[in-house]
């Protein structure tokens, strides 16, 4: 399974990447939403995108809206991973098309639990 991790913090990209690789994902990273769209435009279509909210160039909400407006990317599951924890912001993200919302700080178990709920744990991990 493939995952794209979009976060302007390289440290946070490394952390999320390490968690997902530990679950068996093949992971690519991007520093903001526009870079993330570039990866998708290349034809590298992941099952999962973990995307931060506050980023330069293109923020996570704009990214989610852009992905949802393209029918070719309908299969992608979008998970916001962000320190934006106001209820109104969570509602906005879900309304824009995000499937799940993880608030920083998180634990590896929290990510794993969310992926389990989404049916996105690789089979050998889920067993």
């Amino acid at each position: 399974m493939r995952a794209l991790v979009i976060d302007d913090s390289r440290a946070m990209r490394r952390i999320v990447t390490a968690i997902l690789e530990g679950l068996g994902y093949e992971v690519r990273g991007a520093g903001h939403g526009r870079e993330g769209l570039d990866v998708l435009d290349e034809g590298w279509i992941p099952e999962l995108v973990c995307v931060d909210w506050n980023m330069p160039v293109m923020d996570g909400l704009q990214f989610v809206s852009a992905v949802r407006s393209n029918p070719a990317w309908r299969s992608i599951t979008l998970m916001m991973v962000t320190s934006e924890s106001e209820h109104t912001q969570i509602v906005r993200a879900l309304a824009a098309g995000a499937h799940e919302y993880v608030i920083k700080p998180f634990t590896a178990d929290a990510i794993r639990d969310k992926l389990g709920l989404l049916g996105l744990l690789p089979q050998e991990v889920a067993l």
Binding site: M55, E86, K104
Partner: peptide, 22 residues
């Protein structure tokens, strides 16, 4: 990033809506 995480959660404890910078 640590400041971002702490700041985001402090923001959530304050009256909103508020915006958070990079």
């Amino acid at each position: 990033e640590i400041a971002n995480v702490v700041g985001g959660n402090v923001k959530a404890a304050l009256p909103g809506p508020s915006a958070l910078s990079l």
